[in-house]
Design a protein around this nucleic acid. Structure first.
Lengths: 195, 195
DNA sequence: CGAAAATTTGACATGACTCAACTGGAGTGG
DNA sequence: CCACTCCAGTTGAGTCATGTCAAATTTTCG
């Protein structure tokens, strides 16, 4: 159950001893969610950071008009939650729910800080993890600024082919910041002759 | 010269001993830039991460049509550079230049890793630093998805009043992803009766 | 003062949205 | 196994926000 996480930690250049692995096994809590179930809901305080070991989740906000806006998809081997609420203890403005049957390893903020104290090398793990995350956000902001809807869609299917397979276009439209109708037109208008 | 950085480190919950501070003083390199000067240019490999102690920088990309898109403004007490290039050693797609006369403390990747090894508590510093950065990117992505130009502008001047003071509207338009003409219309059309 | 840059304004074009209707496939219950 | 419903996806028509191009005006600063 922890294999994926240990592999992930190793992939960030961090080596763990058996005793440290045991601390990690004792710290995280395993939890299953069914498709459609919430991991976190708007207005709650995000008590956990969640490492997904199986399945697929989405993070979205709901605006004043009731429209959903998907901020990110999170498949297995990635972390999800609302860092802002998790760290500040304030209510989140996001929802996280499962697009597939999903399993996570979760940890509270106190546990996380305690873990980083007991296994200091985990600071490095999270440092590197967050670096990657920042790089990816950077890319997303750039795309939003410099590309139109069609270009963003093409970029999306190129960067995340598996997610493209696994979620309906409607959700991808929400991620791209356009309506499902617009995405449908984009897909059909220029089939095969993109760019 | 290092006071601001030490205060910043402390503000992330990290306490340094005098010997550690000395290591930091010996590691970073101080550099001054004049207004308009590049800290990093498109195509270069980002050799440094830069902590700004004075001044204001902007990070922007240039698209196929030659349009500039500002990804972020970085005032004193924040870090700038292109993390992707800095970490991967690949050429950057961004430009970072100075909107004011600027001074930085800079560090190479090897120095950063060595510093984190010698002063392990710096892993925690960067971990927390990156957390904040992720929270802020999250907010930006959400805004881009759910707000129109006027709302994003109002949010910007509310969140970054000092930057609003310090840079021409043209640059803010670029940050918001709209044309200077559109921003001008937004500003004049509804003076006083926003929201 | 004068040149360059920033801002504003006008006229028009266009990408994406909204609302509404229609299509087709997946799942469900009789 | 059919009828029914539900929902994603498609299509059409009209609208709106924002972009484009061009020119006038104001501000900045050497």
């Amino acid at each position: 159950m922890f294999d994926l996480l240990f592999k992930n930690i190793q992939s960030k250049g961090v080596t763990l001893h058996e005793s440290e692995m045991q601390i990690i096994r004792d710290t995280f809590h395993h939890k299953k969610y069914r498709k459609g179930q919430y991991i976190l809901q708007d207005g709650e305080i995000s008590a956990f950071d969640n490492y997904i070991i199986k399945g697929l989740a989405r993070t979205y906000s709901v605006d004043a008009k009731g429209q959903e806006h998907i901020v990110r998809f999170t498949p297995e081997d990635w972390w999800t939650g609302d860092l802002a609420s998790f760290l500040s203890g304030k209510p989140t403005a996001y929802n996280v729910d499962c697009l597939e049957s999903t399993e996570v390893l979760r940890i509270t903020r106190d546990q996380l800080e305690a873990l980083c104290d007991k296994v200091p090398v985990m600071n490095k793990y999270f440092r590197v993890l967050y670096q990657r995350s920042i790089i990816s956000f950077n890319l997303r902001v750039s795309s939003n600024l410099s590309m139109n809807a069609r270009e963003r869609y093409n970029e999306f299917i190129k960067r995340f082919p598996e997610i493209h397979q696994r979620v309906p276009d409607k959700q991808i439209a929400s991620y791209l910041g356009i309506t499902p109708q617009s995405l449908s037109r984009i897909r059909n208008q220029f089939t095969g002759e993109n760019r």
